[in-house]
Design a protein around this nucleic acid. Sequence first.
RNA 1: GGGGGAGUGUCCCGAGCGGCAAAGGGGGCGGACUGUAAAUCCGCUGGCUAUGCCUUCGUAGGUUCGAGUCCUACCUCCCCCA
Length: 418
Amino acid sequence: MSTYESEFLRVLESRGYIHQVSDAAGLDALARDERVISYVGYDCTASSLHVGHLNTIMMLHWLQQTGNKPIALMGGGTTRVGDPSGRDETRKLLTYEQIDANKESIKKTFSKFLTFGDGASDALMMDNAEWLAGLNYIEMLRDVGRHFSVNRMLTMDSVKLRLEREQELSFIEFNYMILQSYDFVELARRTGCNLQMGGSDQWGNIVNGIDLGRRMGTHPLYALTCPLLTTASGAKMGKTAAGAVWLDAEMLSPYDYWQFWRNTEDGDVVRFLKLFTTLPLDEIEKLAALGGSEINEAKKVLATEATALMHGRAAADQAAETARKTFEEGALAATLPTVEIAKADLDGGLGVLTAFAQTTGLVASNGEARRQVKAGGLKVNDATVTDEKATLTARDLTAEGVIKLSLGKKKHVLLKPV
RNA sequence: GGGGGAGUGUCCCGAGCGGCAAAGGGGGCGGACUGUAAAUCCGCUGGCUAUGCCUUCGUAGGUUCGAGUCCUACCUCCCCCA
């Protein structure tokens, strides 16, 4: 099981992507002798994917790099139903308009990692709304529903956990796994798809799809899942101060994205280098040898490489440079996130609380700003704010013509009069 | 259909004799220590035009000087019986 013959599985294995595989030997042979056509499905529940989605995107990336064909499946149809996996409560239903808007926004991300086109190993973008939205209920029950045993569905983790915890599981959610299974069969028929990948929480749904394929007479189908992303200290990854770590630059700036990776825990650095950069393993080995505080060098490499993949090399280098100036030189980096204000506001004197809360949004409210002042967490031009009634004026402008506002040691924003 | 129980600070879990902006956790944020790490310790964790005002305990009414706390109806969920 540990030595695969196909390049595809060898790469995934060596970089730590493999959690479970349905028929490892069979899939290995397929990847070695023929071509793997694999898909990952993405729900359209938000307007951007977040780092939690990154490992499956990277799996698609490596799939393509090793000569196979990736399919990014937008869950335009399944999102209308809602996946109960790993959730205690029913998601609230999104409107079709929201789903479509999210879908369009999410699509952009994939072009960074995959090459789309019509060639044999070019990536495809599909949307399951295409075949799910128009399904006829009676036909669906006869063609697909009869292959599902409720007895068995009740034993699936996503269902069982809800029942055991005595938490509501609505019928609409109960159907999610049927739709996802059907997706697999439909993709197998339409594109020759033979492998579905996903996070480990998707195992049950994927295996159901394999069974359905067998019953409905498709070619053999395979499942491959990756471990769920958690930090070394066990926390679920993807959450940060401001919320999720979004992939879309409009929702999280490349600089903040870089910072997220820069702040990785020591114990995660090597694992993340393998998962979220495309650096060769021998280079990662060298970085892994760094001890003590030298590991910070590895973290910078991680941050820059991961950011380069997502936002481009130029943005990554700039983020690294901004961070270097800010943290290592203690200098003022003009490339820090900047908020423009009207000159007139400054002439009249801008209250510090207002500046931090309303103007820059560094803190959520005036009250929060007040508390931070008390805790010594706010700084103007690196000087701690001690008077919550202080005002900012043109005199506070630095030689560079800006005012630097900081929350804690890591979050900085520049105010720039226009 | 009958009987019993539950819904709390819009991140979560959870206490709550009629005087409560509401115990305690977790999480988060800030501070100290460090290496922009982890662990640890300390502080904070409704909003505002702020010695006061406003909004919060499933929903809508009611009793009361005063209700998360009592009463009524409704909604949702759970358990037992049928």
